[in-house]
Amino acid sequence: MGKLIIFAGGLGSGKTEIALNFARAEARAGEKSVLADVDLINPFFSSRLAIEDLEKEGVKLLAPRRDLAFGDVPQLPPQIISSIRQDNSLFIDLGGDESGVLVMGYLRSYILDRPYEFMLVVNPYRPFAGSLDDLIALKEMLEQSSRVSFTGIISNPNLVEETTPETVREGHGKVLEWAQIMGLTVRYLTVEEKLFNELQPEYSDIIYKLSLHFRPDWLGIS
């Protein structure tokens, strides 16, 4: 059986970019890679908008299509259940916050049947994720709503274009400290390509390189 990684977290914690990078890396490694975009919260900046690029790279995308891609009603790609059971790697990108993980209520019985990773994506520079109390509240809310316990944390400390190595070090330090108190392991530290080489030696065991897909290039101008 291939990998099964489910990405959950607060609104705007970086789930979609991370899930997309994991799915692309898997396809590049020659594995069958499926990305499920089950963001029922909000289709802005969602994987379904990158469908052409993903399919070109060999990632199979399960997502609302064509005229339904921008429907703001709950809709789940039906093939997701078979993908959980088949011989492929599956990356599930949930919507943000407690309403986003509600989808797990439907998927959990299939998921609990097999090995999986349920990742809490944390960017400590986001509202409602900037303190230990906030993070505990978020984790509890997501676990209650999904009825699945997290198996690890993905630390994603960034201020997008303003991110410096110091931003990453400071933010990641906090995530590590909070994770330890919460009894969870930080499995990955995700950083953008431009910072990867500088930070790689310090965090070689967990660092993961992200190339951002949804960031418009005109944002630098203000």
Partner: peptide
């Protein structure tokens, strides 16, 4: 941390 990453609607 004096900078915060926010969505427009949140800000």
């Amino acid at each position: 941390m004096d900078r915060v990453l926010m969505k427009g609607n949140e800000a």
